[in-house]
């Protein structure tokens, strides 16, 4: 039976292996204009965690991501990145905060007029005073990290979807940020490339201690990589579950969460039962 989700207690995460909270979201109300998509939500992301933001289509995952990465201001509430308030910082402080994280966009967002190495070098050129040789070395190192060192002089248009995503991770890592935001990393990738990308994320997280915040609805990927997830619900405009994906799949008592993790459709009505016969009849 479906429970009253607003009355469900959000589970407190207890991940002692991870450090202090590096992202703190407090009483965030998110949306556009007068439209509220998420109302008064709070959560923390701990240092070194691979954190997933999940939810159905239109639940507000991307809207929250845009608030977190400084693209769209929230309607209300506060976002602290490494204890600094993102939306109340002055331009100079804000720039410092922005340099603490990197973002990989769903469409990779590599600059089409630049080669891969120029793409990765760009943040270094803009925010450091390193000599060109040093910047090139760093950029090649980052490309090597994602397995694209042999493609440094290629244009983004010459790469496959998976390679573009890896290159985007290399660019996001250029300034050695502590946090990486990934927007739908597996979207549009074949299963093998998707798994390879998952392994890359785990490797970067475990070897460099980078915190990952991943917005996705790819369950296979989430079960492989995420330490902890929150599930957004568009009906209650809030977080209805918080915990490890395995725990939520097996032990959640919230109807939507169980159906979400076990891929159970919303309704199974009589019409669906008849559909097969009808299709046969139409032929």
């Amino acid at each position: 039976m479906k429970k009253n989700k607003s009355q469900e207690k959000i589970q407190e995460s207890n991940h002692s292996e991870f450090g202090e909270p590096i992202i703190q979201v407090r009483n965030l109300t998110s949306g556009y204009g007068n439209v509220v998509i998420m109302d008064n939500i709070s959560f923390d992301v701990r240092k070194g965690e691979i954190f997933g933001i999940l939810g159905g289509s239109g639940s507000g995952k991307s809207t929250i991501l845009k608030n977190l990465i400084g693209l769209n201001p929230p309607l209300a509430g506060k976002i602290f990145i490494d204890n600094e308030n993102l939306w109340e910082a002055n331009p100079k402080e804000r720039l410092k905060i922005l340099n603490k994280f990197g973002v990989m966009y769903q469409q990779s967002a590599l600059f089409g007029s630049m080669t891969l190495i120029e793409n990765v070098r760009l943040p270094l050129e803009e925010f450091t005073k390193l000599p060109l040789d040093a910047m090139n070395t760093i950029a090649r190192m980052k490309l090597k990290m994602v397995g694209l060192d042999n493609f440094a002089d290629h244009m983004p248009s010459e790469l496959s979807g998976g390679m573009k995503k890896r290159a985007a991770i290399a660019r996001a890592m250029a300034m050695d940020p502590g946090i990486l935001f990934l927007d739908e990393p597996s979207a549009g990738l074949d299963p093998i490339t998707s798994v390879e990308l998952d392994h890359l994320i785990i490797r970067l997280s475990r070897s460099l201690g980078v915190t990952f915040v991943i917005v996705t609805h790819e369950l296979a990927s989430i079960f492989t990589i995420a330490d902890r997830v929150i599930v957004l619900d568009k009906e209650t405009k809030g977080i209805i579950a918080d915990g490890s994906p395995e725990d939520l799949k097996d032990h959640s008592n919230i109807d939507f969460v169980v159906r979400f993790f076990n891929r159970i459709p919303t309704e199974k009505n009589e019409l669906d039962k008849k559909s097969k016969k009808s299709r046969m009849g139409a032929k």
Binding site: L71, R94, L98, N99, F101, V103, Y105, E126
Partner: peptide
């Protein structure tokens, strides 16, 4: 958007 989040 990528430029904006890079601080450019």
């Amino acid at each position: 958007d990528a430029l904006t989040t890079m601080g450019l």
